[in-house]
Amino acid sequence: NARWTTEEQLLAVQAIRKYGRDFQAISDVIGNKSVVQVKNFFVNYRRRFNIDEVLQEWEAEHGK
């Protein structure tokens, strides 16, 4: 399903906090979204969920 429920959106943001840009890991956490759908989520929801800021926090924690 290409549509993202609110629950899936929140799950994705939590997974980004945990896995950074590991699209496969994020896809696995959500369970019903492909890697391509996760990559599209990054692009389409970047502003709404401040994904750049979430990634900066992840990179700071993981030394990337």
Rank of each mutant, 00 (worst) to 15 (best):
N44M: 13
N40F: 06
E7C: 05
R3Q: 12
R48D: 15
H62P: 09
A12I: 05
E8T: 02
Q37A: 10
L11N: 12
D28C: 10
E8P: 00
Q9K: 10
I26G: 04
I26Y: 02
T6C: 09
D22Q: 05
A15K: 02
L55D: 04
I16R: 01
N32Q: 08
T5G: 01
V54H: 07
A60Y: 13
D22I: 00
V38L: 01
Q56R: 14
K64Q: 09
N44Q: 12
T6A: 14
W4D: 00
D52G: 08
N40R: 12
R17H: 04
G31M: 06
N40E: 15
T5Y: 04
G20V: 02
S27E: 03
W4C: 06
T5N: 13
N1A: 10
S34K: 02
E8S: 04
R48C: 10
D22V: 01
I51P: 06
F41T: 04
N44S: 12
E61S: 12
A12Y: 11
N32K: 09
T6W: 07
A2P: 11
Q56L: 12
F42T: 02
K18N: 13
A15V: 03
R21D: 12
A12V: 08
A60V: 09
R3M: 14
T6L: 14
L55N: 01
T5D: 05
K39N: 04
Q37D: 15
W4A: 05
E53D: 11
K33R: 08
G20M: 00
V54P: 06
A15W: 02
W58H: 15
F49A: 13
A2V: 10
T5C: 04
D52H: 04
E53A: 13
S27C: 05
L55H: 01
G20E: 03
R46D: 07
W58E: 10
Q14G: 13
Q56C: 07
V43L: 12
R47V: 13
Q9W: 05
R3S: 10
F41L: 02
K64W: 05
Q9T: 08
E61N: 14
E7R: 11
K18F: 02
R46K: 04
V38C: 02
L11P: 12
A12P: 03
G20Q: 00
R48Y: 11
E53I: 12
H62A: 12
A60H: 11
N44I: 15
R17M: 05
